[in-house]
Design a protein around this nucleic acid. Sequence first.
DNA 1: TCGGTTGCTGAGATCGGTTGCAATAACACT
DNA 2: AGTGTTATTGCAACCGATCTCAGCAACCGA
Lengths: 331, 331
Amino acid sequence: MPDLSIDVVAKAAGVHRSTVSRAFSRPEAVKSETREHILRVAEGLGYTMSPLAQALRRKTSTIVPLIVPDITNPFFAELAKTMTQAADERGYQLMLCVTNGDPAKSDGYFTAMQAMYAPFGIVAPSTKVDTEALKRFAFGHKVVVIDRVEGDDSVPTVTVDSRKGIMLALDHLHGLGHTSIGYVSGIAGTHTAQDRMDAYLELTAQSGSTPVVLDSGSDLDAGTRGAEHFLAMDNPPTAIIAANDMVAFAVISALGRSGLRVPEDVSVIGFDGLALGARFNPPLTTVRQPIADMGHIAIELAEKQNVDGSVDHIVLEPELLVRGSTSELRK
Amino acid sequence: MPDLSIDVVAKAAGVHRSTVSRAFSRPEAVKSETREHILRVAEGLGYTMSPLAQALRRKTSTIVPLIVPDITNPFFAELAKTMTQAADERGYQLMLCVTNGDPAKSDGYFTAMQAMYAPFGIVAPSTKVDTEALKRFAFGHKVVVIDRVEGDDSVPTVTVDSRKGIMLALDHLHGLGHTSIGYVSGIAGTHTAQDRMDAYLELTAQSGSTPVVLDSGSDLDAGTRGAEHFLAMDNPPTAIIAANDMVAFAVISALGRSGLRVPEDVSVIGFDGLALGARFNPPLTTVRQPIADMGHIAIELAEKQNVDGSVDHIVLEPELLVRGSTSELRK
DNA sequence: TCGGTTGCTGAGATCGGTTGCAATAACACT
DNA sequence: AGTGTTATTGCAACCGATCTCAGCAACCGA
């Protein structure tokens, strides 16, 4: 394969390199006959432009990093899936970066991406993001965060309304006759996680019941510990809200190992709306986040910021997804 | 941030650009004092080399595509996780490419990666890979496949011993007293999927029982259909082998919805060893694939092929992981 | 017919490195 | 001292595009 560069196409088409360049990158600047001729020749040669060379010269590439703590967590996997697609549709290539919760890695990715002239990046954090730290990196000025951030409006964000989501869960459970409802926090140490918990605390108090936080940890074992706590109680709640689906899975699994059945003995509701939940045993009732929308919106916000400089904060609406892990209270 | 190029470092260090280049890329070619001086100056300026410019000139980059059909499938997610790490350790950056099972997309990724001068790529296919098609792309000569390939030894592969895995599952179930054991195929249309099924058929016949294939589909609903088939049988098997963990989840979920309990009423064993399985209800007994090893080995094979031209076919050993979804047969 | 646009295309510098080759210095040996 | 290495470093072309500037032709109105 004789290396195909812009010059060989130019020669083959009998024009100058710069004309070929324009034919591809700025079509309106070339007489249409010329352009079509060039494109035809290029096509015939099987030529495509080198994204590397373009990026080097233009100082901006089409590769967009998505930084997630753990791709093994289905929430991030679903996010990654929709984002690859959203990116693709707009001509970007998504580069998946997995930090395993290590902020140092995340910094490393930032500088690497900056060196690659990434036009912007998306971060799905596992901790409350420090916008100051973010902005110490030049690249930090061009990221959108999939979480709420505190005190600083200069970073675009996408989130779903945590309070609304918890309210949905609570209302659903109340409707089924449950009045004593426990809560298990979980996994991420994000603002979103905090918000969900706060909403639970506040809304429960408002309805006159006393909140029962079964576990407030933020690691993978929160579900298991929450279940243990539940089992050790004299007067346990009749329903449990899990901060996210993964935790709900763990709770149900741990409960099951101790002989308790869901939803017969306890109702459990999750938060996320993972596709996986539909194949759980029992299928998980949950509050759905519009993950696909989040992905698309994240990219839009990033692009918008890049052109306008505008910084938006989008809050999406969650939605109740009733499946099989909750049922009417029975005495 | 005044653009940091090799020239500003050179000026600051009082040497020529090429010396700076060597100090970084070919340390032994520079007097050690000079090198240390340059490195110190660079460090002080916060300079790092542009991977883009390097790739352009060297005609080889450090970005490695991992092509998977669906990142939402935890098997591929775990693979992606270990591979990002394995890649990282060797100085590559993994670029995740999701095809959604569309071979055309996969072709597109190939040419894109070739344009990016990727040194090689890893493919985890969702269908039997056609090595001929693979090699129509120049890039096809530099890919390692995470599946068996047929009739063509020119492509490095990593797989686990399917027959051994099925044997492990069968032996485990036999040991628990089960003699009538069904099988649900699932999801991927790969050689591996085929091999597992063939092994089941063959080994079952060998042990004198008659195979019961509950579903042989290769889509996400195989588990559900398999369970339906099971429920409709007059004399259903007492245990089920699922071709992979995701299918096992679906089977158990569907069985559960019909009031059947696992493992009390039916034993179910999966194949994959996903971390998720430990948090299923019940925790899933399964045949573990050494996914982490697969990731590392895939990268090693690719590198090896790149230098030697050598093509290896590595077959890894599976391992039985007994958790809670199988139990002694009771009448 | 002539100056002024306007539309296209070519020249050539540039992006940030790499690398073969030449030049110089330093050292060894006869 | 003369000559043949060998170790370092500088020079300049090159990778594959982009983009500013300039040149040229066609077209416009007076």
